[in-house]
Amino acid sequence: MELQTFLIFAMTQAIVIASPGPSAIVVASQGATNGWRTTVFQMFGMMVATAIYFVMSATGLAALILASNLVFQIIKWVGVGYLIYLGLTALLSRSGGLSVAPTGKVKSQKSLFLQGFVVEFANPKVLLFFAAILPQFLDTAAPIAPQMTIMGLTGAAMQFVIYSAYASLGNKLANGGMRAWIVDLINRTAGAALIFAGIKMASVTAER
């Protein structure tokens, strides 16, 4: 892989990760609830989901999933349902896992990992990115495995850094001495944003 191609890939990947979406919202909310150290396990779940998509893209499985409307719809609607569930939890429950305020209630590491994994893996836009965009950066004349390894490690590092920034931002917002109504507004906004993301996700199709 040429340096220029790698830099373009890195920039594209950074923009995709940094764009406010379901994963960023969930990470920021968890960071606000229990801090960065706890949120790391959630981020690991997202990184594992991304790694799986990298492997699927390299082996052509992602393209097969896109070709199978049934499998694609299952992945999509699992994601839609879960995002709406998380959004409603944030909107209706003061003690919900997405409350943008320190609650003192810490979820288990396994629970956080699974939540991060499901949010990332069930997002059809992530699947579309790895199936339709990622292969364009590969040099088919060179060995594929080293290129995928480099790109995968780069993507994982970017996820960790960018999502850590979101988690730290959420934590600072929740612990910055804000008035209760402001914290509540942020919490409600996060919930509404997740529901909106779920609704938008429902309109995603497998067409490239």
Rank of each mutant, 00 (worst) to 15 (best):
Ala156Gly: 03
Tyr163Gln: 15
Gly155Gln: 12
Phe117Thr: 04
Thr154Ile: 07
Phe130Tyr: 12
Leu112Tyr: 08
Leu128Cys: 07
Ala157Gly: 11
Ala122Glu: 05
Ala156Ile: 15
Val161Ser: 05
Pro124Phe: 00
Pro135Val: 01
Ala142Tyr: 09
Met151Arg: 09
Met158Pro: 06
Met151Ala: 09
Leu127Arg: 00
Ala157Asp: 04
Ile133Met: 12
Leu114Pro: 00
Gln159Leu: 14
Gln136Ser: 13
Val119Tyr: 06
Met148His: 08
Phe160Cys: 02
Ala145Tyr: 07
Phe113Ala: 03
Ile144Arg: 13
Gly152His: 02
Val118Cys: 11
Thr149Ala: 15
Leu127Thr: 04
Phe137Glu: 07
Leu138His: 08
Pro135Met: 02
Ile144Ser: 10
Leu114Cys: 09
Ser164Arg: 01
Ala141Leu: 13
Ala145Asp: 11
Ala167Thr: 06
Ile133Tyr: 11
Val161Met: 02
Met158Asn: 07
Leu134His: 04
Ala141Asn: 15
Gln136Asn: 13
Ala165Gln: 08
Ala132Tyr: 10
Thr149Leu: 15
Ile144Lys: 12
Ala145Trp: 12
Gly155Trp: 14
Ile162Gly: 01
Thr140His: 14
Thr154Ser: 13
Ala156Cys: 10
Lys125Gly: 07
Ala145His: 09
Gln159Phe: 14
Phe130Gln: 04
Pro143Ser: 03
Ile150Glu: 10
Phe117Val: 05
Ala165His: 05
Phe160Thr: 02
Gly116Cys: 09
Gly152Gln: 07
Pro143Tyr: 00
Thr149His: 08
Val119Thr: 10
Phe121Trp: 11
Leu114Asp: 08
Leu127Gly: 02
Thr140Leu: 14
Gln159Cys: 15
Met148Gly: 01
Ala131Thr: 02
Leu128Arg: 07
Ile162Trp: 04
Pro135Leu: 05
Gln136Phe: 09
Phe117Ile: 07
Ile162Lys: 00
Gln115Asn: 15
Ala131Cys: 06
Pro143Arg: 00
Ala165Tyr: 05
Asp139Thr: 02
Thr140Pro: 01
Gln159Met: 15
Leu128Lys: 02
Gly152Glu: 02
Val126Met: 15
Gln115Ile: 12
Ala145Asn: 11
Gln115Phe: 07
Asn123Cys: 06
